[in-house]
Simulated assay, not measured.
Amino acid sequence: MTQDAPGDAPHALVVDDDVLILMDATSILEDAGFKVLEAMNVAQALEVLGEHHEAVQLLFTDVHMPGGADGFELARRTAENWPHIAVVVASGNAKPGPGDMPEKATFIGKPFSPEIVRHHVRKTLPDDKHPEPLKS
């Protein structure tokens, strides 16, 4: 699902199987200036990335989701296949162990606030990739 945003806004992909958290993260990233794509599991996320990877600047993913693969695997596959995409992984239950996340990815715990998300996105994305609202 694509949400409305300015046409030149960078894209973010939000992946979470909890609809309320998906909506919350989408809203936070839209307010930060992203055009947001959504997926509810790893298979959907990989499909979206396969189609839109050139426009996507940020992956924001949960860890535990249905379908076998988890957010750590999605983060690693994204970094391997599309290294230009910054990765933020969030979970309320899991903590990353050695080798779980790509080198430049960041991890945040749930529940998260808009301030925490914006801070980690600023830290993870290169400065020249920050949407206008994140630059301030």
Rank of each mutant, 00 (worst) to 15 (best):
H52W: 13
R76N: 08
I28F: 15
V48C: 10
D31M: 13
Q3M: 13
N93C: 09
G67K: 11
A25R: 00
G99P: 13
H53P: 03
E30W: 07
Q44K: 15
K95D: 11
G50C: 08
G50R: 10
S27G: 09
P114C: 13
A39I: 07
T2R: 12
S91Q: 06
E54V: 14
E73Q: 13
K104D: 11
G33N: 03
G33F: 01
T124K: 00
P83R: 08
H120A: 05
A69E: 12
N41A: 07
V14Y: 06
D16N: 13
D24M: 14
L13E: 06
E115S: 12
L13W: 04
V42G: 09
T26W: 08
N41R: 10
Q3F: 15
P66H: 07
A9V: 06
I21Y: 02
E38Q: 14
F72H: 09
V56L: 09
T106D: 07
K35H: 08
R118Y: 05
E30R: 12
D24G: 10
R76K: 09
P102I: 02
P114Q: 09
D62Y: 02
H119D: 15
P114A: 13
G97A: 11
A69T: 04
G33M: 04
L125I: 02
F34R: 08
G67H: 08
P133W: 05
A79E: 01
D16R: 07
D62S: 03
I108W: 05
A86Q: 01
R77P: 00
T78P: 04
H64L: 14
D70N: 15
D4T: 14
A32L: 12
E132N: 03
E73G: 09
H119R: 12
E73P: 05
V15K: 08
D62Q: 05
V63E: 03
W82P: 05
I21F: 06
V14C: 08
Q3A: 14
A94S: 13
S113P: 06
M23S: 13
L29A: 05
A105N: 02
A90E: 00
E115G: 09
L58H: 01
R76S: 09
M101V: 09
V63M: 07
E103K: 12
P83E: 08
H119G: 03
N81D: 13
F72I: 04
H11Q: 10
